[in-house]
Design a protein around this nucleic acid. Sequence first.
DNA 1: TGTACATCAGTGAACGCGCGTTCACTGATGTAC
DNA 2: TGTACATCAGTGAACGCGCGTTCACTGATGTAC
Lengths: 214, 214
Amino acid sequence: MGWSKDDEPGARKGYHHGNLREALIRAALNLIGEKGPAGFTFADAARAAGVSSAAPYRHFRDRDALMADIAKRGFELFRDALQKAWSGGKPNPYVAFEAVGRAFLAFARTEPAHYSAMFEAGVPLDSAPGLQQAADEAFAVLRSAADALTAHMPRDSRPPAMMMSLHIWSMAHGIASLFARGDAGRRRLPMPPEELLEAAILVYLRGLGITDSK
Amino acid sequence: MGWSKDDEPGARKGYHHGNLREALIRAALNLIGEKGPAGFTFADAARAAGVSSAAPYRHFRDRDALMADIAKRGFELFRDALQKAWSGGKPNPYVAFEAVGRAFLAFARTEPAHYSAMFEAGVPLDSAPGLQQAADEAFAVLRSAADALTAHMPRDSRPPAMMMSLHIWSMAHGIASLFARGDAGRRRLPMPPEELLEAAILVYLRGLGITDSK
DNA sequence: TGTACATCAGTGAACGCGCGTTCACTGATGTAC
DNA sequence: TGTACATCAGTGAACGCGCGTTCACTGATGTAC
């Protein structure tokens, strides 16, 4: 959304289609959002973009290439969202760290199609140039946040940032995929997923000897 | 596995097929295990079971019904596996609780096809009679383990068992779906998933004031 | 024990459908001069 | 500024394929008597 209103008319005025590549990605995102990662075909995307079924081949080798591209863009957006939430550790690392957690779930909720392509569609990380790197960069945001959060601790009692970030990453993904989907029919929860994650992070950090009051 | 060696010869000797229903489920599990939850068709399953493509309709309304049945059986096996790992809280609740965590990952690893059907194939929990209940019972094992683990704590500082079990469930699922898949191309990990989960549970329980030495 | 009959699991042929993919084409765009 | 030409995005017709599903059928099983 957001730029779609400007883009659609803009797309028509070009030569044949204008920007079919973008239109196909947009269409695929809509279809994934509606029917899940397996719920669209190459032909569907073409139809939704208003072109013939042969047109997409000018831009993507096949459906997998389209999905890989979506996953890559997803990780880039994800990285940016986490980065922004971290905001350099302001106002303090503890608060910023929790903001990163919330941003994780917010992304899963507002960009379910990207999220599916990134984590659930089985897209291999080497299936598009830059995909692996984008995924690594997104993870690196969390990882360096963990670094900053533990920087003040004495070396010998400092928990490994790698482990911390894997734990938080896993917990957030677990909650996102079980409870925070826009999908349907999934399990009910006695509280919002954001609160569930926030509580988990709080308990977890306390277990590492990290608290807000410091 | 396990009973398959006895079953296959046994299946041939009956009337037409013997036990086609079971054979179809077995075939579907193999196909899901090989190519993911979306990687098989109704016709594939029939072919793998060595029957005509019309035969499965005698046993399942459609592919979704087959998947729902697999998910239900999966939750039943899962419940039993968690129950067994908990083993009534022996030798002590803390140790038994960690065994439940390990059993979670072990299930995801040894029964990837069941696990997919249960958590990743998007099977609605109301799509088969008994499915919801089987899922609830599996979760209930973890939930009552959390109850037992906190039973000795004073009422006012006792963490809610519901929250605890949702956290552990989410963490285990997150680790399972990100790192413990037999699949392919998934992310590398500097340690076995079991250790990652064990460390997470340890830190988490410490954060709640629960330790082994008690 | 034997016979007649109902039941029921699996057959195989058939169908419509939509997908993926190829192909020669067309018509708009960009550019050399 | 104008003309000729190369490039390139999208067309539309065509194809083979496999899937889902239906249908009248067949042949084995179970059972009533």
